[in-house]
Computed example of a mutant assay.
Amino acid sequence: MRLARFRAGDGGIRIGRVDGDTLVDVSDVPGVGTSLKAILPRLAELRPAIEGATGATHALVDVHLEAPIDDPQKYLGIGMNYKEHAEEAAAAGIPTPTSQLWFNKQVSCIVGPHDDIHKPIVSDALDYEIELAVVIGRACRHVSVEDARSVIAGYLVANDVSVRDWLQKRSPTFTLGKSFDTHGPIGPWLTTDDEIADPLDLRMRLTVNGEVRQDFQTNDMIYDIYEQIAYLSQVMTLQPGDILATGTPAGIGAPTGRFLKVGDVVRAEIEGLGAIENTVVAEPAPTQLRGRDSEPAAR
Rank of each mutant, 00 (worst) to 15 (best):
L206F: 00
N159C: 10
S179C: 07
V280P: 06
Q168P: 02
G112C: 06
A91C: 03
S171I: 02
A153F: 12
D293K: 14
M236F: 13
D10M: 07
R2T: 10
A230W: 00
V143R: 00
R164P: 08
V281L: 06
T57P: 05
C109E: 07
A298N: 13
D127T: 07
D116E: 14
D160C: 06
H118L: 09
A53M: 08
W102M: 04
Y155G: 00
M236W: 12
S294Y: 12
N81M: 05
L232E: 03
L176Q: 10
T248D: 04
A53T: 04
R17L: 15
A38D: 15
D198F: 05
D115A: 14
A59C: 05
V18P: 03
G11Q: 11
Y75P: 00
I94Q: 08
E271D: 05
V26F: 13
D127V: 03
R42M: 10
S123T: 14
G184A: 13
A49Q: 15
M221G: 07
A56I: 12
V208H: 05
N219L: 01
L65V: 08
P30I: 06
H142I: 01
R2D: 11
N209D: 15
A275P: 07
G12D: 13
E45N: 12
T175Y: 02
P199T: 10
G77H: 01
D220W: 03
N159A: 01
R203Y: 10
R213G: 04
T22F: 09
T57Y: 02
I196T: 10
R42W: 06
G184F: 03
C140G: 12
D194E: 15
D28N: 14
Q228D: 02
T98S: 13
T248L: 01
A53K: 08
G177Y: 04
G272N: 08
Y128Q: 03
D193P: 00
E146P: 01
C140M: 08
G52D: 14
D181P: 00
L60C: 14
D116C: 00
Q73W: 04
G93E: 09
D10Q: 15
K261V: 03
H85W: 06
T191N: 01
